[in-house]
Nucleic acid binder design. Structure first.
Lengths: 223, 223, 223, 223
DNA sequence: GATGAATGAGGATTCATTCAT
DNA sequence: TATGAATGAATCCTCATTCAT
């Protein structure tokens, strides 16, 4: 499911006993995370039970708890790997390397990637689920959230280099909010309708950001 | 908590025997709904248990089930009353009566009301919670959702009288999505920061809608 | 449903206040018993709830308990009235007045009546249900049971005038057992198959009893 | 309580790791079934609760549900094992191998076995309980019922080789009905009285069946 | 590591019965 | 009488987590 993070796993073979064990552990973990992804996607995070995950993974509950102290930890690790995967796929920066990129292009690309990533890793949606209680993001989704925020902030800061940090943070949060709201709608539809929602999401983000991006070339009102 | 929906309750007092009984029941229902609102707000809808609601209301579980067949029904009734209250407070239409109202003003007023309503009825947030699985809105939140959508659609259609119905629907969904996303952020902050988020939400909505509102006077680019 | 047992209810009209009340009470009781019959028949005695009975009767649970101390009492009263009705319909004796009646005829008639009675009062089956634990007939079915036993014993004793009392009792119990077993099968089928089971039940009873009825004219082996 | 159905459990001991675990589970299952048998016997099937069974077995409710999804499943498994035990004890056929066996002998032996089996497994009675509503045998008792019917049919068909299938089925059902009715009476008494009822049951069955068994040697009227 | 058995508190829901009005 | 609200223990069942093997 995810790129192998232990690049060095084939490196030395001197201590193969513990190594094999670790390898086995890694496999188990991957297996469990994959199962968790399936279950989270199918039933939603809250409704997912550790027993169901273990069953889906074809292992016993006890085994699951040998690798994860609780459900939360599974979600966290899953989120971590997801973010790792995202970084591996799209690089560290979400944003444009080319300074000539217009906001429209940047947003378009970011949204497209965001959607594509979700389609490949549908669990992403389940893990990003907003808090049940405003302001209290569950710890298990926190890291994911933070990573996304920092990626978005990275992108934004290239367009808003002079923005006040507080404003930037706020804008970032708004963007993530719009993203999530749009994603929900996109995933709820299919075919042409889905595409239309993708377009709307891009519009919403572009238009929201455009007035803020006055100082930069290629900003939309320059058309 | 809610406006009395039995307008005729003071009308005739000849049959006060059955009346009094219903009154006690009505009081209990109100009490239970208030308790449910508290619990939903505190723990979120999913995590809320009927026993917890009964406990909060100071009654036994059995009493709760005398009035509501299950948690879902409580949420639905709560949503109904909330929508009723909203209609009573702000009138049937969300939108502007005065055709001279600018989009900015309309959105500003709508958002302000939306936020204010939420602050007075914090459970609103819990009941509006997006689905755990994309596209599968829980039945209990459906009616609330539909009502909100139709209110928003009403507002939008006065600004976009010529829009294609499918487009209008999509725009409506987008607006509700932005609303919800913004609301989450607003509620997560306080004081000046909250106000700032309110402003951002207004911006996001206005800017999203503005280009769609070409034919109307007062449209933002007319400035 | 049942013949009015208070023959004297129209007799004097001097104290009509309490009389009316009693009349009303009788109506309520009849109404409740009818509802109970419906519920017992539909769901079985054990699964029937007093609330369901009250609902079926269109009254409140409290009202039910004004007339019956508990579910058991309802069953008992229902059984009583059923037995009363049976006596009114078929007379005190189940058995043959005419000494020339053959056993076959007597059994045939008794079974036919038994079945017919059941079809008209389907709750009979529910009330006759055997004990869940051998030997411990529920109190609520006890009287019904006893009445049936005595009716059967009456019939049998006319055919077995010289039988040892203990034997007679045993035979009586056996007959009731066969009756009940057969009834279950009869009711479980329809049309021709039902008729066939009725025939089988008659056969089983006749053949079981025939050898015991040596001394009497018309005994089956005399053919 | 029951014969070990895992014949191969002593076979190989190479993989005793998984074996031991299964063994513990098997023990628990046996223990739970035994507890269920006790509770069913004591309170009747309907009144028995899963919690009561767990309590009787000295385990927590959760443990019970690790092995059985619900009460029904317990009853079914219990019935299965009972039938298995019956087959092991009395062989596949209920009936006479020796063609010279008279109906009387065959019925006598079958009844004796039936009663004996019940005395050793008193839960049998609880599981055979007739339906609360005619014709609607609970699923949990269905298999038991079917097995008994097929055993009886096997016995009968050796005596009634030329019978019409529909007649045979009907006769079979009648016999099981008589059996059950008689069993109830037998179990409700003790000592000499019980024996007397056993005799009556044999009589009832023999006499019921005798006329049907015309073509066979040893048929009762041939005496 | 792996298993699967075990836990027990907590979930929703029901029901016979009582009580205030 | 009649109502229907109220009770609370008991129902079945689930689940995160732990433990012996």
């Amino acid at each position: 499911m995810f790129a192998n993070r232990e690049k060095d796993s084939q490196a030395s073979q001197d201590k193969d006993q513990p190594r094999r064990r670790q390898a086995r552990g890694e496999r188990r973990i991957a297996q469990l995370l994959e199962a968790a992804a399936t279950v989270f996607t199918t039933t939603g995070y809250t409704a997912a039970s550790t027993n169901a995950i273990a069953r889906e993974a074809g292992v016993s509950p006890g085994t699951l708890y040998q690798f994860f102290p609780n459900k939360e930890a599974i979600a966290i690790e899953l989120g971590d790997r997801l973010m790792h995967e995202m970084r591996e796929t799209y690089g560290e920066a979400l944003g444009p390397v080319d300074p000539a990129t217009t906001l429209e292009q940047a947003v378009g690309q970011a949204v497209d990637r965001f959607i594509a990533f979700n389609c490949e890793h549908p669990v992403f949606f389940a893990l990003m689920h907003g808090p049940d209680i405003p302001g209290r993001i569950a710890e298990e989704h926190d890291a994911l959230h933070a990573t996304l925020l920092s990626r978005i902030e990275g992108l934004l800061s290239s367009f808003l280099p002079d923005a006040d940090p507080a404003d930037l943070t706020r804008t970032t949060h708004m963007c993530l909010g719009l993203y999530k709201a749009g994603l929900e709608l996109v995933l709820a539809h299919e075919g042409a309708e889905r595409d239309a929602y993708v377009g709307e999401l891009k519009n919403a983000l572009t238009r929201y950001l455009d007035p803020l991006v006055g100082a930069r070339l290629g900003h939309i009102t320059a058309h």
